[in-house]
């Protein structure tokens, strides 16, 4: 019985980590005043690149770096259109998602059903394989990266000078511009960071969770990550909480399916994370404090008055 609870806990961590990674990136992007709805697309680009490069080279680390670079490249299409050419952010983000879905299934076509070795735990087997200690030491490196990044992003946004500038750009772009900061430059950097994190999240799906390629394997998780950013009221530590809450819901869905709980149809369980997202958004968004927490310039193109 105990062993089962431990494995459930391990699954929760695995389900939560990619949500956390992707949402942390998007949080920084939105703090800079940019709404990138292309999260799902960038994750898919990262997922397929990580898989393909690891398959070709046999080196997981090379795969991860390639996944991040590919997702950053995808995010730069978005950045160029929305920041340099001031296109509509909603439409451009959607285009990026449609693009990511298409390009990933095209590149991945030759890889369907192929497998790569799982990106396993970092710690030695004595710790990682221990029945209880594995809860602390038995995870893939990306899990620790996601936790460290939560702290880093929290520190960056509240304690660092660069973070202050980034928030200024997101709250009042005109003022930030007038005192000499490059609004567009800061936003490019933020979007690139969002891309890199989405790439990491994507390769978590294709290299850690199911080291086998399947089309659209992110299954809308990018959209849930977007919702999590709203849930967190743009606060990194609340984001961590939200990601693990959703990871738990998803894990319970899988466990219920595996146990064959008769009361609910499997389709209902599959719909559960999406219903939960709507419910949580409804509970959270109605409170005035959340509306006030949104960066003031979110989604608005910046056109300096020259």
């Amino acid at each position: 019985m105990d062993a089962m609870w431990f494995s459930v806990a391990m699954t929760i961590v695995a389900a939560s980590t990619p949500l956390l990674l992707a949402a942390l990136g998007e949080l920084v992007v939105e703090k800079a005043g940019v709404l990138n709805l292309g999260l799902e697309g960038m994750m898919l680009v990262g997922a397929v690149t990580g898989f393909a490069v690891t398959f070709a080279t046999g080196a997981a680390l090379v795969g991860i770096v390639a996944a991040m670079l590919a997702a950053v490249a995808a995010s730069m299409i978005f950045a160029f259109l929305t920041l340099t050419l001031a296109s509509n952010q909603v439409a451009t983000g959607l285009a990026l998602t449609i693009f990511g879905v298409g390009i990933s299934s095209m590149i991945g076509e030759g890889f369907v059903g192929k497998t790569i070795p799982v990106l396993g735990p970092v710690f030695p087997e004595a710790l990682a394989g221990h029945p209880f200690l594995r809860l602390l030491f038995g995870h893939s490196p990306l899990v620790y990266v996601s936790l460290v990044m939560t702290a880093v992003v929290a520190w960056f946004l509240t304690r660092s000078r660069a973070g202050l500038i980034l928030r200024a750009v997101g709250e009042n772009d005109a003022s930030a511009h007038s005192i000499g900061y490059s609004v567009i430059g800061v936003r490019y950097a933020a979007v690139a960071f969002g891309g890199a994190m989405a790439g990491l999240a994507g390769c978590f799906y294709s290299m850690v969770q199911t080291p086998m390629w399947a089309e659209e394997l992110t299954a809308g998780r990018g959209w849930i990550a977007l919702a999590l950013v709203v849930f967190s009221a743009w606060k990194p530590w609340r984001l961590l909480l939200g990601a693990y809450l959703f990871g738990t819901v998803m894990t319970l869905e899988l466990q219920a399916k595996a146990a064959g709980v008769g009361i609910f149809a499997p389709e209902f369980l599959a719909a559960l994370p999406y219903l939960a997202t709507i419910l949580v958004l409804a509970l959270i968004s109605s409170r005035r404090s959340v509306g006030a927490a949104a960066p003031a310039c979110l989604g608005r193109p910046f056109k300096p008055a020259t």
């Binding site: 259109l81 296109s87 693009f99």
Partner: peptide, 18 residues
Amino acid sequence: PSSATGVFQAMLLFFLLA
């Protein structure tokens, strides 16, 4: 591949927005 259609369609929207 069948997914090529989606890639072309997304590129079309990119270029239109650009």
